[in-house]
Design a binder for these strands. Structure first.
Lengths: 204, 204
DNA sequence: GTCTATATGGTGATAGAC
DNA sequence: GTCTATCACCATATAGAC
């Protein structure tokens, strides 16, 4: 299983060995045309090989798809872990969480988009469940940070689940409209969302 | 152009004339499998006719797709207009706006999903521009409501564009996770988001 | 308005030479 | 590891009878 060979730290954009390039081009095509709208021929053309050669690296189209998705989610979780580890207050943790998410979108937009749009179309149920579990853990992490803020008296009593969902919605939706050549960096936007929402968390 | 024949009030779910049923089944399939993942054969099967018969009602697959999308957006705008018309304060308008959006998702989930996911894959550039203009007008409406709240002193000075984007992100993301058999109605969730965000709008 | 039959080309996937 | 050649199938779309 190729998924296991690719560590969570595997850079999704710089390395140029064949399977990495295949995944990068596939992610780009899945993101822009959808899973059904991107053919093996399209991917092969983008990489610069024949479609038959794709089958040397991946069993079938679905394995390319699930590898893209699992890689994206693993990398997001890894980034959040890295950037919240040394935070202390709830506000700091939430800020780190959101900036990590934004950084992930900025650096791996196609992977993120392909994962967000395509995961519900995953063929293998085990992979789908695995991704679902990772996403659930991800949301639970944010809920934990918010809950800590309430318990520490940093925030007012609030609906933790709703608050986490609101912030994650903002971050997820960024992949739809944020462009690298726009006026604000992804992390700036994320930070602004956090400020806006935390103002509501503190209000009494 | 069939788009013109279908008024903004056209009910997306109840009427059973052929073209309406085609659109409903197509929306469902586009929402669950993507545009490229749903074939004319699939749509014909769902409707209960042969795929050749589809071409009596629509020129090609793309016309089915764009009709679904334009109908969805028109209906959303119509609903928002209806439910904010008689509001006075900014908070009331924002609440009406959000509840209308939630109602639209609850009543036309497949149409909404197909529109949200598929509009960037629209083939005809004029239709795409038209949908884009409608969506822009939609966001501008919300910005106007928030701006009014700031000018009336109901809200603090805040980044209106960011605030509108935050709320719309929450509403848009609902289509991804909200289920009719869940614990809260779509309108309840929307209302909760509004309360949470407006608390931040009022905070000083 | 719906059908059967068909045209034409693309699909995912494999076999086997180099 | 990459290719050419090929498979069986499905795609969108059309022609024309009823």
């Amino acid at each position: 299983m190729i998924l296991e060979e690719l560590s969570a730290d595997a850079d999704l954009s710089v390395r140029t060995d064949r399977s990495t390039v295949i995944l990068r081009e596939a992610a780009r095509l899945f993101a822009s045309h959808g899973y059904g709208g991107a053919s093996m021929q399209d991917i092969a053309n983008a990489v610069g090989i024949t479609k038959a050669s794709l089958y040397h690296f991946f069993r079938d189209k679905d394995e390319i798809h699930s590898t893209v998705i699992v890689l994206s989610v693993k990398r997001l979780l890894h980034m959040v872990e890295l950037r919240t580890r040394d935070c202390t207050t709830a506000a700091e943790k939430i800020e780190g969480f959101s900036r990590a998410h934004a950084q992930h979108i900025a650096e791996n937009k196609d992977f993120y988009f392909a994962a967000a749009e395509g995961y519900h179309a995953l063929a293998q149920p085990e992979v789908k469940r695995r991704v679902q579990r990772m996403r659930d853990g991800y949301e639970e992490t944010l809920r934990m940070f918010i809950r800590q803020g309430v318990e520490d008296g940093e925030f007012r009593e609030l609906d933790v689940k709703l608050a986490a969902r609101a912030l994650i919605s903002c971050l997820n939706w960024m992949a739809r409209w944020w462009r690298p050549d726009g006026p604000h960096s992804a992390e700036e936007v994320a930070s602004d969302y956090v400020s806006l929402l935390i103002a509501g968390f503190r209000a009494s």
